[in-house]
Write a protein that binds this DNA or RNA. Structure first.
Length: 821
RNA sequence: GCCGAGAUGGCGGAACUGGUAGACGCACUGGACUCAAAAUCCAGCGAGGCUUAACCCCUCGUGCGGGUUCGAUUCCCGCUCUCGGCACCA
């Protein structure tokens, strides 16, 4: 019999489904394990290598835990709302709902062929009204807590996609989706107050098992900084300028103040002589796009206002400028400029010949004057009144305290993170459940009226306004409060809102009385292992944490971190570039499943290299895995007459030397595969399986190995290979007379700790650190025995001849090094 | 510019807390089987040298330059390059 993967895989997929092998009993939470992959976007491209690379190894990890006796919940679903379907509709006329439904059907059948433990009864589809009804509920939940608000603010606008974007979706000033330069526009938009959770989001990172670099990215994105807000009075003007600084210790070095061109006080402070130039400049900056405005390589520009501000620490009058290097959206939109100790101020001051005053010296020396660059480090204060001579941290507090006492400053914490802009002027998303009434203002749609259904018949050509605005039947509604005619909010929600809570919904995807079953959620959540791409570090992964924390504070869930442990799979590139339709370098997994089978393909993906590193795609080497599985099949086929033994306990007493070797190797294999799988180190686990197969095949053909031991080995190997090649494992089990599925009836083996130590070890003999001989000695041989044995080696003697031994280093069971002269 | 990760044969990669560098696999070469091919099996496979040859043996070798150590892919210092993130956040 040959390894007929096509019929084997078909047979077992059918068996699993008919026998409901992967049906999870959610009420059994004794040893629960929630293993989650990031759900998928159902595009017309279907499943690609990247999905397989995310899902298949994760399924291996999940199956491993199932065999270890965990009740594993491993669901899959569809992040079905979003721009691509809508853009496709604009191009082809196929309605997003129709294309999405079709894509989901196709993808579901592909998923079945992958051989993962998905139970399709627990699918979620975010574009289904039974799902987005509850996305709207989540919105209202945040709204009730004051965490959702609508305001007019400068926002990022993508002219191509005709919608606003969140900060997180702007990459290098370009739209994340279509790479069109984003423009800044003032618009009335919906925001989630994620900034209110900045500190909680930072704190929670210390309690979760996530990759350090991902946590660091979130910390940097949140960008907490402690400083002082200082009040500068303006000469002859009533209003004060407030500036935020993290370096109050350099206040004596402030030689000018800068306002962002958009700062509300610009008109008020500007002297009439300077007005034409200032107006012209403000106009110029307004027309810069995001890239020009925020480019750090671009030379800074600015103009003076003719006005003067008063430094509260010494009463000094310093000029007020406006410049494009000050952002209106951070801090107070105004800064005190200390050119000697800030690179940006230094650059600007040099260009416009503004004074540079040194107020901090390095601790161990004097600065070279004139300064070639700003000295930004801490040091000792100079030219700083009675603070002169003190070290920077002391000056920091001293100045802050003194100003605070006089009411000229307050300590403040600023964050880089902005509120989450969630409204979109597009069709294919969940409508925002708010009604605008002339009399009552903003009125939330009552829960009993949810969902606010997305109408099917809509002209979705983008115009910069939501397509829903042109659908009168949708827009016109009675105000829930006063009953008078009112208008629905026409924007839809960012799809990241959908994906911020889907893992709660999986447990009860069809529940129609609540978003989720609070009891089940408290039993199954947080997610034990979450696997997905690192590209979501500051978007999905941050948003989901925020939403869960908000639900926690609202008393809706018992935990405040959704994902206890996170793993990122690496990215599979092709010819060095990310696979994408536009580049035409997408590799279709189906062809490999057809030629080699799903087991070979999933195992090959795991064998390519470390899971979190990914790599460039090449099918070179897939034959290696295919050969391995063939050899496994052949071995079991050849030995199918060996009676199956009971799976528990094997008496290792009275084995021959060769048998002891086999038994030891088997136990070493169990240990290795177990430890590697725990840590997602699939490649080395597979290498160990291969190595064992090579050794065992050879030993069992050349030496006399008892049938009891062989039965033990075959049984164990059957289980060890099962998470990697589940279809084949079922077939092997059947060959050996098994009934039912491996995953229902077998258990992961424990290794025999007494059996894993080698009886003999290879010891390296070095002379001056160079290998001169290798000895095979019984384990734990004494140092003296080893020394005398080593010195009899001819090659060692040759290198010792005529030399004096200065020192002999012995590392037990490892090596021996003669240091000679 | 700043922060983070990395660099090992022809290729993907392995190597525990400093202790045999190159596990496992691919490709390649030779052989067996075959009428032949495929498949399969066996052997070899970092570079260079010594040797008629085999077995040995020697030198070099983990991006580059230094250092610590009996001993460094592993630790320290200084670079180069690649990838990821951030990018005037005061």
């Amino acid at each position: 019999m040959k390894y007929d993967f096509t019929s084997i895989e078909g047979k077992w997929q059918k068996f699993w489904e008919e026998k409901k092998v992967y049906n999870v009993n959610l009420n059994d939470t004794g040893k629960k394990l929630y293993c989650l992959v990031m759900f998928l976007y159902p595009s017309g491209d279907k499943l690609h290598i990247g999905h397989w690379y995310n899902f298949a190894p994760t399924d291996t990890w999940a199956r491993f835990h199932r065999l270890k006796g965990f009740n594993v919940f491993e669901p899959i679903g569809y992040d079905a709302f979003g721009l691509p379907a809508e853009n496709y509709a604009i191009k082809t006329g196929v309605h997003p709902q129709d294309s999405t439904r079709k894509n989901i059907t196709d993808i579901r059948s592909q998923l079945r062929k992958m051989g993962a433990m998905y139970d399709f009864e627990y699918e979620v589809d975010t574009s289904d009204p039974e799902y987005y009804k509850w996305t709207q509920w989540i919105f209202l939940e945040l709204y009730k807590k004051g965490l959702a608000y609508r305001t007019n603010a400068p926002v990022n606008w993508c002219p191509k996609d005709q919608t606003v974007l969140a900060n997180e979706q702007v990459v290098d000033g370009l739209c994340e989706r279509c790479s069109t330069p984003v423009v800044r526009k003032a618009m009335t938009q919906w925001f989630f107050k994620i900034t209110a959770y900045a500190d909680k989001l930072l704190e929670g990172l210390d309690r979760i098992d996530w990759p350090e670099r991902t946590k660091l990215m979130q910390r940097n994105w949140i960008g907490r900084s402690e400083g002082v807000e200082i009040v500068f009075k303006v000469e002859n003007v009533e209003d004060d300028i407030r500036v935020f600084t993290t370096r109050p210790d350099t206040l004596f070095g402030a030689t000018y103040v800068v306002l962002a061109p958009e700062h509300p006080l610009v008109q008020k402070v500007t002297k009439s002589d300077f007005k034409p130039k200032v107006d012209e400049y403000v106009e110029f900056v307004a027309h810069e796009n995001e890239i020009e405005r925020t480019s750090t390589s671009k030379e800074k520009t600015g103009v003076p206002t003719g006005a003067f501000a008063v430094n509260p620490i010494n009463g000094e009058k310093i000029p007020i400028w406006i410049a494009d290097y000050v952002l209106s959206t951070y801090g107070t939109g105004a800064v005190m400029a200390v050119p000697a100790h800030d690179e940006r101020d230094f650059e600007f001051a040099r260009k416009y010949k503004l004074p540079i005053r040194i107020v901090v010296h390095p601790k161990d020396g004097k600065p070279v004057e004139p300064l070639g660059a700003a000295f930004v480090e801490e040091g000792v204060a100079v030219n700083s009144g009675h603070f002169t001579g003190l070290e920077s941290p002391k000056v920091w507090d001293g100045i802050a305290d003194e100003l605070q006492k006089n009411g000229d400053a307050t300590r403040k914490v600023n964050y880089r993170i902005r509120d989450w802009l969630l409204s979109r002027q597009r069709y294919w998303g969940a409508p925002i459940p708010i009604i605008h009434c002339d009399a009552c203002g903003e009125v939330p749609v009552p829960e009993k009226d949810l969902p606010v259904v997305l109408p099917y018949d809509v002209e979705f050509k983008p115009t910069g306004e939501s397509p829903l605005a042109r659908n009168d039947a949708f827009v016109n509604a009675a105000c829930p409060k006063c009953g008078k005619p009112a208008k629905r909010d026409v924007d839809t929600m960012d799809t990241f809102v959908d994906s911020s809570w889907y893992f709660l919904r999986y447990l009860t995807p069809h529940l129609d009385t609540a978003a989720f079953d609070a009891k089940l959620v408290s039993q199954w959540l947080p997610v034990d292992k979450y696997v997905g791409g690192a590209e979501h570090a500051v978007m999905h992964l941050l948003y989901a944490r925020f939403v869960i924390k908000a639900l926690h504070d609202a008393g809706r869930v018992t935990f405040d971190e959704p994902f206890t442990s996170l793993v990122h799979q690496g990215i599979i590139t092709n010819q060095g570039a990310k696979m994408s339709k536009s580049r035409g370098n997408v590799v279709n997994p189906d062809q490999f499943v057809i030629s080699y089978g799903a087991d070979t393909f999933r195992m090959f993906l795991m064998f390519m290299g470390p899971y979190n590193e990914g790599g460039d795609w090449s099918d070179r080497g897939i034959t290696g895995i295919f050969r391995f599985l063939n050899r496994v099949f052949d071995l079991f086929e050849e030995k199918k007459e060996i009676p199956s033994a009971s799976e528990t306990g094997f008496n290792a007493n009275g084995l021959t030397e060769d048998e002891r070797t086999v038994y030891r190797k088997m136990n070493q294999l169990i240990k290795k595969v177990t430890e590697d799988l725990e840590q997602f180190r699939f490649n080395t686990a597979i290498a160990a399986l291969m190595e064992f197969l090579n050794d065992y095949t050879q030993l069992s053909s050349e030496k006399e190995i008892g049938l009891g031991l062989q039965s033990f080995v075959l049984h164990g190997f059957n289980v060890l290979v099962a998470p990697f090649a589940p279809h084949l494992a079922e077939e092997l089990y059947l060959l050996r007379g098994g009934i039912d599925s491996v995953f229902s009836s077998l258990r992961w083996p424990e290794y025999d700790a007494n059996a894993i130590t080698e009886e003999n070890v290879t010891l390296v003999v070095q002379v001056n650190g160079k290998v001169r001989a290798k000895l095979t000695v019984p384990v734990d041989s004494t140092d003296d025995a080893v020394k005398s044995l080593a010195s009899t080696e001819p090659n060692v003697q040759r290198h010792l001849e005529g030399k004096t031994i200065l020192k002999t280093i012995v590392v037990r069971n490892r090596l021996l090094n003669f240091v000679v002269k």
